[in-house]
Amino acid sequence: DLASVSTRADRDDGGWIVNGTKIWTSNAHTNDWFICLLRTTPLEADSNKREGLSQVLIDLHNTDGLELSPIPFLNGEHHFNEVSFTDVFVPDENIVGQAGMGWNQNTTEMAYERGGPDRWLSPFSTVEQLLRETQGTDIGERATELFGELTARWWSMRNLSLSVARLIDDGEAPSIESSLVKEMGTRFEIEVIEKLVELVDHQLTPESESLFQRLLAQCVLTGPGNTIRGGTIEILRSVASKGLQGLPA
């Protein structure tokens, strides 16, 4: 529940003092800056938890009191991090947009992230490599049939993403539409991986001489993470259902 964020920023002379943690921070160990959603107004028992949140820009390399902890994948790769703040000072000019409007800004930005093609195209290069390596073989014929089926669905997903992009271009914030695209795209990605595993029907290893098998092994290891990034399937369904009923997400 993003609105329940407890990492806080308390007012200080010329800025804010930040304490707390931010988890699942992508590439914090390689980036120079990142945007963090913080609570800048204390949450009262009877207040709306979506209010009093702000986005701030924080220097990842030249900030006292900031610590990064890696969250490795099952295969040992490092993408996610937990960022801890202990009395971190952030100047006023690092507030992104308007203080207290962080929830609205964040949900609008999520439409860009959830509606994009990277939410359903992840296994595409793996399927391409399968076709290259199996051309002219028995499994190649089945791979071609599978590619035809998947291409039709990829084309449908592409049109859905384009519809979200058009709404954004028109100045709208399509949170419902983008949530549905991401929910369908995530399930489709997992289905593609399962179909490929069923097709090859043998033990996969990241050390295989076959580039296709290495790519597929990577998909199997990292695929579950696709259901988390940008919001879990359950969260996306909740956002869409509440939005369709006119309720706050």
Rank of each mutant, 00 (worst) to 15 (best):
T40H: 05
W33G: 11
G65Y: 12
S47W: 10
G246E: 13
D118L: 09
E133R: 11
S125I: 11
G185R: 15
I235T: 13
V96I: 04
L244F: 01
D32A: 04
I95M: 05
V83Q: 00
Q218W: 05
L130Y: 04
L216T: 11
G230P: 00
A9W: 08
F89C: 02
A173S: 09
A240C: 03
E191W: 05
F212M: 12
S54M: 06
Y112L: 06
L167N: 12
D32W: 02
W154P: 02
A99G: 11
G140Q: 07
T107A: 03
Y112A: 07
S163F: 04
L146F: 02
L247E: 14
E141M: 08
N104C: 09
R119Q: 15
D201V: 07
Y112F: 05
P117S: 09
T205N: 15
T107R: 03
P248L: 01
Q135W: 13
E145R: 07
G225F: 13
A3N: 07
T134N: 01
G136A: 10
S238N: 12
T205Y: 09
L204K: 13
V83R: 14
S54P: 01
D92H: 02
S156Q: 13
I176Y: 06
I176T: 15
R214L: 08
Y112I: 13
M184Q: 14
R119S: 06
N104H: 10
N81F: 12
P117E: 14
Q55P: 03
Q245K: 10
S156D: 13
L211C: 10
I95A: 02
G116N: 14
N75S: 13
E177P: 12
N226Y: 15
L37Y: 10
I139T: 15
L53Q: 05
G97A: 07
E207P: 02
K182D: 09
L211R: 12
E109L: 08
L199T: 11
E198K: 15
E189W: 00
D138G: 13
V56N: 04
I168S: 00
A143Q: 09
H78E: 14
P206R: 15
L2F: 04
V5W: 03
A111R: 02
I17W: 03
G223E: 10
A9L: 11
P206A: 10
N94I: 02
A249R: 04
